[in-house]
């Protein structure tokens, strides 16, 4: 559930802007630490700590976003930059005194209850949905589809990309705030690149260009290791196996480019719906 909050943000960024980030654990970390310091050191209520965590994560995203996005780094270069950024933030957390270094912050109050997390997730998904189906979402999709054409349609790549990065970092910050107050203990090595990779995996497996897909994937992936706890060491193998199976069977993700409600509601022409999946049917209209 908590994971899903962060994934929603990343789904907006990766799925609709087309840039891959492997540094999102850094935003979660910033959110987690900000919230933890707020409640533990300054004794603020949890409800006040969440927006602060979100804003802090958002501001940190500008630090990486402004130089990389202004330089219009191509997707793979951008991904490498986020990879380095994620590590840099972790190392920083290990060496600052306010974060208590590598020992982390312990004995936080467990504010993150299931209903609270559910409400937060609902709000985040609601905002994400509004973002995606607005003119901002449309511009982001245009960039994903063809950034040259998007630029020639008067869209400022930098503004749109930065905005969606900021949005996704804010979501990750909220996710981090909940995470810290769920585990009740945070330390820098909880926010490694492995964590970032898992987030990205959820988005890709859930479906690029979809919101509900990644959320469902995140819930699924969070629960699979728990359900398989009985299988001991094999559970992570199964987990990996599920990922591979999804990629082989549905390369576009569980809900690639569609939302769950489209399956029931929107009656798109069948040909169009299938065209996204099979690339080999280009020749039959000539």
């Amino acid at each position: 559930m908590i994971q899903a909050i962060s994934v929603t943000g990343l789904a907006v960024f990766t799925g609709f802007t087309g840039l891959m980030s492997l540094g999102h654990a850094a935003f979660i970390a910033v959110g987690a630490y900000t919230a933890a310091i707020c409640t533990k050191t300054y004794g603020l209520p949890f409800i006040a700590a969440i927006p602060l965590a979100a804003i802090m994560a958002g501001l940190v995203s500008l630090v990486i976003g402004i130089p990389t996005l202004r330089a219009k780094l191509r997707s793979d270069y951008f991904t490498i930059a986020t990879l380095g950024f994620g590590e840099a933030v972790r190392v920083l957390l290990e060496n600052l005194s306010i974060t208590n270094g590598a020992r982390g912050l312990a004995s936080l109050t467990k504010y993150s209850t299931l209903p609270r997390a559910a409400i937060a997730l609902a709000i985040v998904v609601f905002l994400a949905k509004n973002f995606v189906f607005s003119r901002y979402g449309r511009m982001a999709i245009a960039i994903r589809e063809d950034h040259v054409a998007a630029e020639m349609a008067g869209i400022n790549l930098f503004n749109v990309r930065l905005r969606s990065l900021f949005f996704s970092a804010v979501c990750a910050g909220v996710g981090g705030a909940f995470h810290a107050h769920y585990i009740a203990f945070i330390q820098p090595n909880m926010f490694t690149n492995v964590q970032s990779t898992l987030l990205t995996a959820s988005v890709v497996a859930g479906g690029i260009g979809s919101l509900t897909g990644p959320v469902i994937a995140a819930l699924l992936f969070a629960s699979i290791p728990e359900l398989l706890r009985a299988a001991e060491m094999w559970r992570l193998v199964v987990y990996g196996g599920v990922l591979v199976a999804i990629m082989v069977l549905r390369p576009q993700g569980i809900f690639g480019y569609r939302e769950i409600n489209h399956l029931f509601r929107r009656k798109r022409p069948a040909v169009v719906a299938e065209a996204a999946g099979s690339s080999a049917d280009g020749g039959d209209d000539s």
Binding site: E145, V148, A149, A150, A276
Partner: peptide, 12 residues
């Protein structure tokens, strides 16, 4: 402008 190798937002 338009493009020689059509550049639409394909999935829109």
């Amino acid at each position: 402008r338009t493009f020689q190798n059509i550049r639409l937002f394909k999935r829109l």
